[in-house]
Amino acid sequence: MARNPKSGSGAVSEATKTEAAKIAKATQKPGQTKEQTKLIAQGIQKGIDQYKKQHKAKSRELDKQRKKYQIHNSTTADESEITEPQETGSGSKLPWILLILSWLLFAAYITLA
């Protein structure tokens, strides 16, 4: 089977080619030949292609970091769910102790005064 010449690392999309041609024509100087404009368009294509590759690499790296962060957070969330009921159990005793203590102190104040 023959490979498609457009597929692979050397292929540039039609959208990139037309965008590069538009930019090259927009910046064309008086007296500039079509060949020079074509070479400028090819340079712009390479720049756009390189930018897209770098952007994809950054996107992949950020996606990997995001997935690691989500996995890490899900495991710590599971651990915190286990410890939360213990904290609420001991935390609910404190208001009752303070209430009883305040009533005892109030009663002692009334009896001594």
Rank of each mutant, 00 (worst) to 15 (best):
A21E: 08
P5T: 09
S74L: 05
Y69M: 02
K38Y: 04
G10L: 11
S92P: 02
L101T: 15
R3Y: 02
Q36M: 11
E14Y: 11
A11E: 12
A11I: 03
A41L: 04
Y51H: 05
D78K: 14
P85D: 06
L105R: 07
Q86W: 11
E35K: 12
A113C: 08
S80F: 09
E14H: 06
Q42K: 10
Q50I: 02
V12W: 03
G10T: 09
H55R: 07
Q86V: 14
A15P: 00
K25S: 06
S80P: 00
A107F: 12
K56A: 15
Q65A: 12
K38V: 00
A77C: 03
L105N: 09
K17T: 10
E14D: 11
K17P: 04
H55C: 05
G91H: 05
I110N: 03
K46M: 01
H55M: 05
P85R: 07
L99I: 13
F106Y: 08
A20P: 11
E79D: 06
S7P: 08
A57R: 12
P5G: 05
T33H: 13
T88S: 10
A2G: 11
I110Q: 03
Y69W: 02
H55A: 10
Q70T: 06
T76G: 00
L39A: 15
T18E: 13
Q54F: 06
D78S: 10
S102E: 02
P95H: 03
T88Q: 10
V12N: 07
R3C: 05
L98H: 00
Q86S: 13
L94S: 03
Y51W: 10
E19A: 14
A108K: 02
T37D: 01
S13N: 12
S74I: 04
L39H: 14
K58E: 12
L39G: 05
Q65H: 12
K68Q: 15
T27D: 04
K29V: 11
S90G: 12
D49S: 15
M1Q: 06
L98T: 01
R3L: 08
K17D: 03
S7R: 14
K46D: 01
E87R: 14
Q42D: 07
D49W: 04
V12P: 03
K58I: 10
G8K: 11
L112T: 14
G89P: 00
S74V: 00
T83F: 07
Q86A: 14
M1Y: 09
